[in-house]
């Protein structure tokens, strides 16, 4: 029972990692850029929702605050690409990596200045409610996390493989110039996908903040999500979720059954092992070009 409980809470954690990973896999899949600030986007999304919901701030109704903060974060993502990243168009990936790292610092500073550096948690209507099933005690928020994550992953998977915009995004990623020739508005597509990933980040942040307290440095969680995305295979949406769950599960198990200190190391150790033995990740997206 104890073991199962551990697994379930790990699963909920893993889904949050998976959601953050989903955010930058989205960006990577469509723009070939890696957003090292995705964790900070998540943190900002959580704080925006806290700002709308909590009694100390605006005290709006939770059901109103959630879509509002998702919209705000979507706009933020769109504006971020439109205002900053679009000017980097055509520059090397390394500079984009460095730029997003720097943006992470700035976002952390802004969030800390507006909402303080104290850990704050989101006041949700279902806080403290539990579901009991055969001796297992599950928080409603944990169940919500798993359900929402699975639904979002499926949605985006279908979006990318079936919808017109999704296909355009894939094309824009595979060869920008060719996509231009085909009449795809690459820059607008890029902004769109950044907006989308901002929305995903908001969802991840809201779920995370409903589970426990959050402070500006929570954004560093994004690094674990990176490991998740790379384990799953960068550029694969189900892979991001799977990687997130693997990390989420390994952490509590390692800290419970492994020697001290192993639980912090485990996610990155798995990442390094995967990179060494299966460089493309579990769902490898790399393929040889046939000439």
């Amino acid at each position: 029972m104890d073991f199962l409980q551990l697994i379930l809470s790990g699963l909920a954690n893993g889904c949050v990692y998976g959601l953050i990973a989903l955010g930058f896999v989205l960006i990577y899949k469509a723009t070939e850029a890696v957003n090292f600030a995705q964790g900070d986007f998540m943190m900002l999304g959580a704080f925006v929702c806290i700002g709308f919901t909590n009694q100390d701030y605006m005290g709006l109704d939770f059901m109103l605050a959630v879509p509002l903060s998702i919209l705000v974060m979507g706009a933020f993502g769109y504006a971020f690409n439109w205002g900053i990243l679009r000017h980097m168009f055509g520059q090397s990936q390394t500079s984009i990596v460095i730029l997003t790292i720097a943006m992470g610092f700035i976002i952390r500073f802004i969030a800390g200045t507006i909402w303080s550096h104290e850990p704050t948690s989101l006041e949700t209507p279902f806080a403290g409610q539990e579901v009991r099933a055969g001796g297992l005690v599950l928080g409603v928020n944990e169940v919500m996390i798993v359900v929402v994550t699975a639904a979002l992953t499926l949605l985006f998977y279908l979006f990318f493989s079936k919808s017109r915009i999704g296909l355009a995004m894939q094309a824009a990623s595979q060869n920008q110039l060719a996509a231009y020739y085909m009449g795809i508005p690459v820059k607008r597509i890029h902004s769109l996908v950044w907006g989308l990933s901002g929305m995903v980040a908001a969802v991840a942040g809201i779920l995370f903040a409903s589970k426990g307290a959050i402070d500006p440095s929570t954004g560093l969680l994004g690094i674990k999500a990176f490991a998740a995305a790379a384990i799953g295979g960068f550029g694969s949406l189900p892979g991001a979720l799977l990687g997130g769950i693997i990390i989420g599960l390994v952490e509590p198990l390692a800290s419970r059954y492994g020697p001290a200190g192993i639980s912090q190391i485990a996610p990155y150790a798995i990442l390094l092992l995967i990179l060494i033995f299966r460089p493309g990740g579990i769902f490898s997206q790399t393929q040889r070009k046939k000439v």
Binding site: I84, H87, M88, S95, I98, L99, I101, A102, M103, G104, F105, I106, R108, F109, I110, G112, T113, H117, P216
Partner: peptide, 19 residues
């Protein structure tokens, strides 16, 4: 006396340079 001002300023300079 805002905590984190230093790294934020540093990051801002960096963004300015890259852009």
């Amino acid at each position: 006396n805002i905590p984190g001002l230093e790294s934020a300023l540093f990051a801002l300079i960096l963004v300015g340079f890259i852009l």
